[in-house]
Amino acid sequence: MQGNRILVVDDEPDITELIGLYLEQDGFIVHTTDNGEDALRLAKELKPDLIILDIQLKSLDGIEVCKQIRLESGVPILFVSCKSDDTDIIHGLDVGGDDYMTKPFSPSQLVARVKAHLRRQLQLSERTPDEVLAFEGVVIDLQARTVHVYEKEIALSAKEFELLVCLAQSPNRAFPLDELYNVVWGADSMGDTRTLMVHISNLRKKIEPDPANPVIIVTVRGVGYKFNFKEGITHVQR
Rank of each mutant, 00 (worst) to 15 (best):
Q2E: 15
G3V: 14
V8I: 11
V9K: 01
D10N: 06
D11N: 12
L21F: 10
Y22S: 04
E24C: 12
D26Q: 10
G27R: 06
F28C: 12
N35S: 08
A39Q: 04
L40F: 07
L42C: 14
D49C: 05
I51A: 00
I55T: 08
L57D: 06
L57A: 07
K58R: 13
L60N: 03
L60R: 02
D61I: 09
I63V: 09
C66W: 03
K67E: 12
Q68F: 09
I69C: 08
L71G: 10
L71Q: 15
E72T: 15
S81W: 06
S81G: 11
C82F: 14
D85L: 15
D86C: 14
D86I: 15
T87L: 08
H91K: 13
D94P: 11
V95W: 02
V95G: 02
T102K: 03
P104R: 03
S106W: 07
P107M: 06
S108Y: 04
A112G: 09
R119T: 06
D141M: 09
L142M: 10
V149N: 02
V149I: 13
F161I: 14
F161R: 02
R173F: 15
A174G: 11
F175A: 00
F175R: 00
F175T: 00
P176Q: 11
L177K: 12
L180V: 08
L180C: 02
G186F: 00
G186R: 00
D188L: 13
S189T: 14
D192I: 07
V198M: 06
N202P: 08
K206W: 10
D210K: 07
N213H: 14
P214E: 13
R221I: 13
G222L: 05
E231M: 10
G232Y: 07
T234V: 14
V236K: 08
V236L: 12
